[in-house]
Design a protein around this nucleic acid. Structure first.
Lengths: 205, 205
DNA sequence: TACCATACTGGTAGTTACTAACATGAAAGG
DNA sequence: CCTTTCATGTTAGTAACTACCAGTATGGTA
């Protein structure tokens, strides 16, 4: 409830021009209550928690596939499963809200910075979920590289999705961005989900 | 001079535990002077400006190559040219300073967030430098995807370089991370710099 | 009903990053 | 010697946060 008022005010007047006191007044609570639910002003917009979803899908994926395919596949699947998609032709209220928040994140420097840092945290979680033995620093480094590249691509797709006002399906945008960065054959060239032969590419050993 | 005192204090006491007033006092100036030279406290550590170098190299690269090869090559070359490398066996004072700042950027959330946002700005500059007609939103999107993936990889290499205390050559780390993410053949498979045949991969059309 | 534990909320005062407006002192140029 | 300019300083203010203490509602128990 507080968050809804905050995002509305931020969109109407701008993030920097809106104080936490304004948000509190609009929500009918005291500033202290706002800080208790959202430790920082930025959290009023960010509040991401579907990172766990991605990590779980990655942990469940076949380790025989190349790294970027494992990660990219998990990103696409998570996006497709995200809050049910659409009802008929128009978007869910959840997705509308997510779109509004995304637009704020992209256009406001402070929010964009923290959002990118959240992606960085997600990257670490992904590397852990890969289970690519952290004992070997070489392999850990390669996993980090693959994960950071994939999350860069994810961010690009999210920005494009927001610019498109959610008209294009997000999972499709992610797939398109992944192929643009990694090549056409990165997504399931043989059609199998887990049994496909690893190709001569990233982390396939 | 102010920056040197700031980085020293941040390293000794921690970033959050050091106030701008502390920095001003250490540098023998007033807090206002600090704010005039460095608009925000974070700028005392960040102050990147070798992004232009990368953009110039990309603009000078052959448009016949795939996107990630153009961008990755520019990143490697820029890193190799960065402030002269080493004298004999130990690092330049410049590089030592850069290492110290990098460690701060990686370990301090606020700095890390702004550093990632700087990379995002660099990504936009790279897309412009690619000259990949912004009129076509499809191609612009693909360029964004490739650039964000490469910059994710760059960040991973920078973190690794800082963890290694600069012992490994940065350009080599970037090359290794790029091959880990994009495959072995992403860096000059035929040996030619600009005349090599484009392969069937990212943005090669 | 009376009692109590827990959780949510509010108030006050303080720190710190940052801004705006104005004043001052020293160097550069005529 | 005078003026312009520029770097610096001072003061006062805003706003994000924190620490600490106090009130209140809710649910369970006797």
């Amino acid at each position: 409830m507080i968050q809804a008022h905050a995002v509305r005010l931020f969109t109407e007047r701008g993030y920097d021009a809106t104080t936490v006191a304004d948000v509190a007044e609009a929500a009918g609570v005291s500033p202290m209550t706002v800080y208790r639910h959202f430790p920082t002003k930025e959290d009023l917009v960010l509040a991401d928690r579907h990172g766990r979803l991605v990590a779980e899908r990655i942990a469940a994926s076949s380790a025989a596939q190349p790294l970027v395919r494992r990660i990219g596949g998990a990103l696409i699947d998570s996006a497709a499963a995200l809050s049910g998609g659409r009802h008929g032709d128009d978007l869910t209220a959840d997705r509308r809200f997510l779109l509004t928040r995304l637009r704020l994140m992209v256009s406001t420097p402070a929010l964009r910075a923290r959002h990118l840092d959240n992606h960085y945290a997600l990257q670490r979680a992904i590397v852990d979920a890969l289970g690519d033995d952290a004992a070997d620093p070489e392999r850990a480094f390669h996993a980090q590289a693959a994960a950071s590249a994939c999350l860069g691509v994810l961010h690009t797709a999210l920005v494009r999705w927001a610019e498109d006002d959610g008209r294009t399906e997000l999972s499709g945008l992610i797939a398109e961005a992944l192929t643009a960065a990694f090549g056409d054959d990165i997504l399931e060239p043989a059609g199998g989900t887990g049994a496909s032969q690893p190709v001569g590419r990233a982390g396939c050993r």
